[in-house]
Amino acid sequence: MYDAILCPTDGSPGSDAAVEHACSLADLADAEIHALFVVDEMTAGADRWDMIVEREEERGERALDAVGAAGAERGVRVEKHLRRGRPHEEILDAATDYGAALIVMGTHGRTGVGRFLTAGSVAERVVRHSEVPVLTARLGP
């Protein structure tokens, strides 16, 4: 059913929960995971762009390596991808580019004012616009 699973990560505990789900599903389906970290180009000011992007790319490499290690523990193939742009747009584009049949991603579980202040979440935007199924994993109970 699933040959390729896209697993966006930001290295957070919420993403770790999604990685566990993605690895379990990939193991069951004999699927490959495409781990994705997106450097959000909207977070950097022009005067500090290079330093911020470099730091985010390093953080991304660590997050992607963690997905690779989780996959290796289960014998699941993991391809790592680092992209730049707006996270929800890059996730949706990556699903198409890598032929993903499923997106598995974490959510921070924000509600109320916290959700309003962040203008909706990346996960919410992906769920609304994805052409493939999206499984969201929330940290906690």
Rank of each mutant, 00 (worst) to 15 (best):
I33F: 00
R74V: 08
M42N: 12
R86M: 14
A66V: 06
R115N: 04
R125D: 12
T107A: 10
R115P: 01
D40W: 06
S24Q: 13
R77V: 03
Y98S: 10
E41T: 14
V53E: 00
A29I: 15
G85Q: 09
K80D: 11
L135H: 15
R115E: 11
I5F: 00
V53I: 15
E54R: 05
R62G: 01
V113L: 12
R125A: 08
V127A: 02
A44P: 09
A95K: 06
R62W: 01
V126A: 04
A119M: 15
C23H: 05
E124T: 09
A70P: 11
V38N: 00
R74K: 09
R115C: 11
V78P: 02
R115D: 01
Y2M: 09
L117E: 08
P87F: 03
M51V: 15
E58Y: 11
A100D: 08
G75T: 02
E56D: 10
R84W: 05
S130F: 00
L6P: 01
T9C: 05
A137Q: 12
C7Q: 09
T96F: 10
P13L: 05
L25F: 10
L92N: 13
K80Q: 09
D97C: 07
D50S: 14
R138Y: 01
A22Y: 02
L139Y: 08
R128G: 05
G109A: 07
A26V: 09
A46C: 11
S121L: 02
V113W: 15
S12N: 06
S15A: 13
R128S: 02
A29F: 09
A95H: 05
V134D: 00
L36K: 04
V67Q: 00
R55E: 11
P141M: 12
V127G: 07
H129V: 11
A46E: 08
D16F: 03
M1K: 03
I103Y: 00
L36Q: 05
W49R: 02
V19M: 03
Y2G: 06
H88P: 07
R86G: 13
G68Q: 08
D3T: 13
L92C: 10
G106W: 04
R115I: 15
E61G: 12
D40N: 13
C23K: 07
V134L: 09
A70M: 08
A101H: 13
S15I: 09
R83F: 12
R138A: 05
V19Y: 01
G75W: 08
V104K: 15
M51I: 11
M105Q: 06
A70G: 14
D3I: 02
D65H: 01
G60R: 02
E90P: 08
G14V: 14
V19G: 09
T96Y: 10
E79M: 06
E131M: 07
D50H: 11
D93L: 15
H34C: 07
V104N: 04
R86V: 13
R115M: 12
A70W: 00
E57I: 05
I52D: 01
T43K: 06
S24W: 13
S24H: 11
D40M: 03
R86Y: 15
